[in-house]
Amino acid sequence: MFVAAYWWEVHPGKEEQFRAAWRRGTELIRERYGSLGSRLHREDRDDGAIRFIGVAEWPDRQTWRKAFDAKMVYDEPETRAAFVEAISDWAEEPLLLMEMTDDLLDRSP
């Protein structure tokens, strides 16, 4: 399994809009590009900024690379617009690219 992490800073008051667009966008990327899904994490920074970090799982580096090279985006215009409107800053390149070696995450309820 392969993991890619991304970050976005969000305008104050736009957190729920961002999360909704991110959820729908993640569904679209899973459907179109073959990701396994993603987790979203929130970081409330000391400087008052709100940053979200998405950690996406992919079957392998090649599947991720093909999607990344295709400039994967949220294909629904309204989802893309809501996402872009909510963010104030982002990284153009992934924060981390990693091969998973061991997985001890308990996914049971």
Results as ranks from 00 to 15, higher is better:
82 A>E: 06
74 Y>L: 03
104 L>D: 11
54 G>A: 15
46 D>F: 03
69 D>L: 12
34 G>L: 03
37 G>D: 02
102 D>P: 01
28 L>N: 08
84 V>P: 01
103 D>R: 06
66 K>S: 09
74 Y>S: 09
65 R>K: 09
23 R>Y: 07
41 H>Y: 13
52 F>N: 05
20 A>E: 13
106 D>V: 13
44 D>Y: 00
7 W>R: 11
63 T>W: 03
12 P>L: 01
19 R>T: 09
28 L>I: 12
63 T>Q: 06
59 P>S: 09
13 G>E: 06
90 W>R: 15
32 R>C: 14
48 G>Q: 14
40 L>V: 13
51 R>A: 12
87 I>K: 01
13 G>W: 01
73 V>A: 13
37 G>K: 01
64 W>Q: 10
64 W>D: 08
85 E>H: 04
77 P>I: 05
62 Q>T: 09
13 G>I: 04
39 R>I: 15
109 P>T: 15
34 G>N: 05
86 A>E: 11
97 L>I: 10
71 K>D: 14
58 W>I: 09
45 R>K: 13
46 D>C: 05
51 R>K: 09
38 S>Q: 06
97 L>D: 03
70 A>N: 10
67 A>F: 01
60 D>H: 04
14 K>I: 11
42 R>M: 03
23 R>E: 14
97 L>A: 05
63 T>H: 03
103 D>V: 10
19 R>M: 11
59 P>W: 02
20 A>G: 10
15 E>C: 04
88 S>I: 05
35 S>V: 10
99 E>L: 05
45 R>E: 14
81 A>E: 04
78 E>L: 08
24 R>G: 06
58 W>N: 02
27 E>N: 06
105 L>Q: 05
57 E>S: 12
39 R>D: 15
99 E>M: 09
8 W>D: 15
43 E>F: 01
27 E>M: 07
53 I>T: 12
64 W>P: 01
12 P>C: 04
90 W>V: 15
18 F>D: 03
91 A>G: 15
49 A>R: 13
95 L>V: 11
69 D>T: 10
12 P>N: 07
52 F>E: 06
53 I>R: 01
108 S>Y: 04
35 S>Q: 09
64 W>S: 08
22 W>N: 12
101 T>V: 12
92 E>I: 10
92 E>R: 02
62 Q>R: 06
17 Q>K: 13
81 A>W: 00
94 P>C: 08
21 A>R: 08
97 L>G: 03
106 D>I: 07
102 D>S: 10
15 E>H: 04
107 R>C: 08
37 G>L: 05
58 W>P: 01
87 I>W: 00
109 P>D: 14
14 K>C: 14
14 K>S: 15
95 L>E: 05
107 R>H: 13
55 V>L: 10
100 M>S: 15
20 A>V: 11
80 R>Q: 11
